[in-house]
Structure formats: C-alpha cells, structure tokens
Amino acid sequence: MDWFRLLRFRLSRLLNLRAADEDLAEEIRSHIEIETQENIARGMSPEEARRVARIKFGSLVTAREQSREAWGFRWLEELGQGLRFAFRSFRRSPGSTSAAVLTLALGLGVGTAVFSVVNALLFKPLQYKDPDRLVMVWSVNHQEGVDVELARRLGRSMSTPEMEDWKESGIFESTVAFGAGNFTEIHPEPQSISGLGVSPGFFETTGIQPFLGRRFLPEEEPRRGRKNVLVITYEYWKRRFREDPGVIGRELVVQGRKGPEPAEIIGVLPRGFSFYYRSKEVITPLTWEAPNRRWKVAQNAG
C-alpha cells in the first residue's frame, strides 16, 4: 500500500473538509436523483419514485459518516473527545491536577536550567580567541591563609608589581588584569553603572572585538589627567541609547575623584558579551581613579 498517497488523499480532504463534505453530499443527491428518474421510467409517480429511491439508498447519515471515516479523521475527532475528557477530569480533581502540573513544570524547568548551565559551561566553547589557552591566575598567601578558593571568593587577586612580574616572566604570551569597576553616572540623573575595568591588551588577548567603534588604544592607558574612554556592552547600548548608531563619540558625565568628569564612548561590544562577572554594562581601562579603588589599594600595598 502506498502510504504517501493515502496521506496525501487524507490531507487534501482534511484541508478542504467542507468542500469534500459538500462534494459527497452532492454526489449522493445525484445518485438518488438518477434512481428516482429510473423509478419514474418504470412507471412510478414522482413522489413514489423519490420515496423508493431514498429507501433503496438507506441511511444518508451512515453513508456520509462512513465515507468520512475513509478520510481518516476519526483520530482527530477522538483526539478532541480525549482532550475534553481529560480537561473535565482535571476540573474534577484540582488537587491531583495541580500536583501533576507542578511536578511537570518543576521537572521541565529544572531540566532546562541545568541544561543551559551545562551547555554554557561544558558544551559551548568560550567565546574568546584560543579559549583552550586562556587561563586565570590568582595569587595566594598561605601565611595569611589565603588559598585559591578564598582569593576567588574575595575577588582579590594581585598587585600591579606582582602582575608586572608575571608579565616579564615570559610564561604567558600576554597578561592582562581586570577587576570590577563600578562607577556613578551623574548626568542626566545619577545612576550606578556596573563596569569591568581591564588593563591594556585585554581586547587583543581575548579576541573580543567591538562591533561599533573601536577598542582601547595602547596610548589610552589611563593616566591621571587623561580623558576617560568607555566601551559599552550591547545590552547597555540598547537600554540607554536605544541602539543609536551615532553613540560613538558621545560623552557620559561620571563621578570622578574631584567631581564630574566626561567619559567618551568609543565602542559597543557585540550582543551577549560576558566575562567572568555577569552583566557588566561598561568596560573601562583599568586604573581609573574612581572605579578601581581596589586596584589602587593593591598598587599602593605593592
């Protein structure tokens, strides 16, 4: 049997159910009409001829119902009945229904959540250049009881001189530092902005590329008195600037050490950028006065 042809036949009937029904009704009418004419030809009165023809045909309803069965919609009707029945039984016992629904919802939810974490951590490669050669280094102090775990938890890493040592050691191809660099935007209204402070070479090392504008230049390594520059994330760009492509070159007014300072937007990162800390809005060059107090403290301590 050619199941494909059967499927096509049923589908065409299903899509034109009304037309198919009407077609069949028309055909049956024509059948009875022909029979009636023949009965008249046999000498019956028109009324008698029609009556006999109807009797001979049998039940119109049965004929049509059984024809429809050949179209294969029984399963659809039964599905509808099944759903209605299920719905009614759910209504009758709301307790066990909600228990079942909750179980399913929780199961699906947890499954999805676990999968998305596992997917991001294990299956998807990191979205950086050479992710298998990217490592993170913490310094530990066993005398003070600071092991890697604690250092991670404190978010504390190393001082500038320490980092310079690493850099010069030649162990790594390139070495960059980063830290949380939250700051306050003053104008038009004060709001806290969560920033990621990065040392020069961050974009080159990670291979992250702004999709609008540019990344920091080496000479933009911040020094006191130099103009502040910012690279903003896609999400922040969307929320704060409504995806305005003319955002490059605009300035935010931020709280500096001695009061308001301008900070120029030089780039926008692609959608979904994430680095160590989740949901950072802005990237700043590290050793900014205001945002990187921790870095400064570390530097002084070193």
Binding site: M1, D2, L6, L24, E27, H31, T62, S67
Partner: peptide
C-alpha cells in the same frame, strides 16, 4: 448492492489510489 455502503467503499478505494 446496499447503495449507501457504496460511497464509503468508493472513498476508501480513492484513498488507496
């Protein structure tokens, strides 16, 4: 021939091609 049962049969035969 049960005339009424003719039509389901005709539909079936069409479905079979």
């Amino acid at each position: 021939v049960d005339h009424g049962s003719l039509y389901p049969a005709l539909q079936r035969l069409q479905a079979m091609g």
